[in-house]
Computed example of a mutant assay.
Amino acid sequence: MTIALRCRCGQVQGRIDPAGIHARATCYCRDCRAYARYLARPGLLDAAGGTDVVAMAPGALHIDAGVDQLACMSLGPRGLLRWYAGCCRTPLASMSRNARMYYASVPVACLDAPAQALDATLGPPGRIVFAPDSATAPVRATRLRLPGVVARIGLHALVARLRGRCVGAPFFDPDGRPSRAPEVPSMQQRAQLERDPDAAR
């Protein structure tokens, strides 16, 4: 059984294999908020400025249609590669610039399934929280669960690296280079993205 992935307008479609999922988490870091504001799409952040994401192995993410619509940005020249659908600015995945770092963060916003079905497969949102101190409203930290989740993600990434696994198409070419040159906002643009507290809600 797979979970359908679909951008807002339907041009990009794919699926994720639940067997490759490490955890579901809510990230409250400032970079994720700035990215949501960059996309300028409502509904990407919760009431405290968090993004609901799935931490997973990138090999379990498949794009079946709309590869030509893939776009990429990065908040800085060395920042994460943040992939989205250029057609409607739906976020799809965030990854390291290093194709050998075998990890992807996939926003739940691009998963095409009822909330109840997602909760049954992924677990409910809010059980695992990253960067709670950066939230725009009080959130409950998950200090007991977080170390275990981080260790599990790190172990999977390490094993994949030792086995020579790399992130491949459509995100990277055979030489390990991003398949799209990421757009990097200027310092002034990034400051604006970090300054606007209400965008993308």
Rank of each mutant, 00 (worst) to 15 (best):
A48L: 03
G49V: 03
G50K: 07
T51K: 05
T51P: 10
D52H: 06
D52K: 02
D52R: 04
G59M: 04
A60L: 07
A60P: 03
L61A: 04
Q69P: 05
Q69A: 15
C72A: 07
M73W: 05
S74H: 05
L75K: 07
L75D: 02
G76N: 07
L80C: 00
A85C: 15
A85V: 01
C88L: 12
R89D: 07
P91E: 07
L92R: 07
L92G: 11
A93I: 00
S94D: 14
S94F: 10
S94Q: 10
S96T: 03
N98V: 06
A99V: 03
R100S: 15
R100A: 15
M101C: 14
Y102G: 02
Y102L: 00
A104G: 05
S105R: 05
S105K: 03
V106I: 05
P107D: 07
V108G: 07
V108F: 08
A109K: 11
A109R: 03
C110H: 03
L111D: 09
L111N: 05
L111T: 00
D112A: 06
A115E: 13
Q116Y: 01
Q116T: 04
A117Y: 01
A117V: 10
A117E: 15
L118D: 04
D119I: 02
T121F: 08
G126Q: 10
G126T: 04
G126A: 01
I128T: 12
V129M: 04
A131Y: 14
A131D: 12
A131V: 06
D133N: 14
S134A: 14
A135P: 09
T136Q: 15
P138M: 10
P138G: 09
V139F: 08
V139C: 11
R140K: 15
A141N: 06
T142S: 13
L144Y: 10
L144Q: 14
L144H: 14
L144C: 06
L144A: 15
L146W: 11
P147Y: 00
A151E: 10
R152L: 12
G154T: 03
L155G: 12
L155R: 14
H156W: 12
H156F: 13
A157E: 10
L158T: 10
L162A: 06
R163I: 06
R165M: 08
C166E: 14
V167G: 01
A169I: 01
P170R: 09
P170I: 09
F171G: 02
